[in-house]
Nucleic acid binder design. Structure first.
Lengths: 247, 247
DNA sequence: GCCTAAAGTCTACAGTGTAGGGACTGTCGC
DNA sequence: GCGACAGTCCCTACACTGTAGACTTTAGGC
């Protein structure tokens, strides 16, 4: 239809370049990353781009749509290649990638888990549905039936998101102060009611999220593998009747 | 010290009863439940209670503190009794309880997962830390070492929260329209890029969250049981050297 | 009755999302 | 060259937000 969807022309180094959706979104992401979600207001973002706040509404219908755009942008950083046949290794890699992604954009994580809650599955931005489709493809390629692939996906992604939330809850930016602040905070707790939690201060202080994720995944994946019609992996469970776990 | 912290007296049926923190919080919860998180503004809540908005600041320092109060209130509905010795059964029961709690208060779930992200562990409202302490107690009572109990807790709670998020994402209030809306939404997706997701419409429509949670828990719990110093459960894995999984 | 402290209210301010309409600018057909 | 046009962008304005600070009312204790 229209021969050019990109901004018409580079106006040269003199004029301010035309706004783009990508420019708006990445500026928004940058702002969220450096100053938190609440700093992302239309006025502030406009100021950051040297542009009237109202201009932004050409590139996102809403503030909500803007947030959706940011989550999409972040999720696009996640690479999934459904060709690989070793599904367990793939899921492991994806999990660690997503974990690192979350650690790289901690302020966006609330969006990642919250936005889908207010948007029915079919109406989400495509970018947020792509991982789901690709993982389904990966699983069916590995031998899972369609419905079973969905169940496996749910267990896997659920655990993954849960872990990320867990880890980010304990994450404190300033690692210098981390332990001190932790002790201080825990010390505030009534000793009688919270003996175990208080005693765990040192263990809480050094938390290896990657390792913990990996161990959880080991448990989960080997358990899930037993759902394969003919378990070809190193597992030795008896093969289950697959694909219709419930009548 | 002060002999009475409760409101001084019941002023009788004539005068409006004194405000209480509990009254404020439960009104807030009710409002959130019926009209969503965004409806919870100070003015609106004040109006709901027939009170000047500024009065609320006597019972919650902030809007943020108000939100914390609501999450605390909801989490208080969760009963955990660390006395029980059968830790697996207990964790199963708690998981289902929390799931039902989330389904009862879907609008509060974003708070449940989001608020802790912006509050370091030591500074959270006591009510939100109580489940953690109790589960730790439950696990150590079952034979786990302190540090191992923490790891088990993390895996368990992570999976649980992940599942709840997953389920609520697919949850649509109006079950009549559910399948129709789902089909409609999925139909919007490009057929070439999302073949599996589109094909899964019927499977997505009837989603038994409880069963799915239970299956995931079975996998996870039996895997976690192998961390017990001397596995006393029905499991037959060789006992691991417990309590220090990493040097 | 008064005294005191708590509880509730009023006013005001800076900041929010965004509707409606007007001004500008680059591109196209002539 | 010119005029038309459509896409961008900006300005103004409105209803609404959280909350600081000073004020008024209320409830007990004596």
């Amino acid at each position: 239809m229209s021969p050019s969807k990109a901004p018409r022309k580079d106006p040269g180094p003199g004029g301010r370049p035309r706004l783009t959706r990508e420019a708006v979104l990445s500026a928004a992401l940058k702002l969220v990353g450096s100053e938190g979600l609440e700093a992302l207001t239309m006025r502030r973002l406009g100021q950051e781009l040297g542009v009237d706040p109202m201009s932004l509404y050409r590139y996102a219908a809403n503030r909500a749509a803007l947030l959706d755009g940011v989550t999409e942008l972040v999720l696009n950083e996640l690479a999934i290649s459904p060709e690989d046949r070793d599904w367990q290794a793939q899921l492991r890699r994806i999990a660690h990638d997503l974990r690192l992604l979350a650690l790289r954009h901690p302020n966006v994580v609330p969006l990642l888990v919250t936005r889908p809650l207010s948007t029915p599955l079919g109406l989400r931005p495509l970018g947020t549905l792509r991982p789901l489709e690709k993982i389904l493809s990966l699983l069916t390629g590995a031998g899972f039936g369609a419905v079973n692939a969905l169940h496996v996906y749910r267990a896997y992604y659920g655990f993954l998101y849960g872990h990320i939330l867990n880890e980010l809850q304990e994450f404190v930016v300033d690692t210098e102060e981390h332990e001190a602040l932790l002790r201080l905070g825990l010390h505030r707790l009534p000793a009688r009611e919270f003996p175990r939690l208080r005693a765990l201060a040192p263990a809480l202080a050094d938390y290896d999220g990657g390792a913990e994720l990996d161990q959880g995944l080991s448990i989960l994946l080997s358990g899930l593998a037993s759902r394969l019609p003919s378990a070809p992996e190193q597992d030795s469970h008896p093969p289950n009747t697959a694909d219709s776990p419930s009548a």
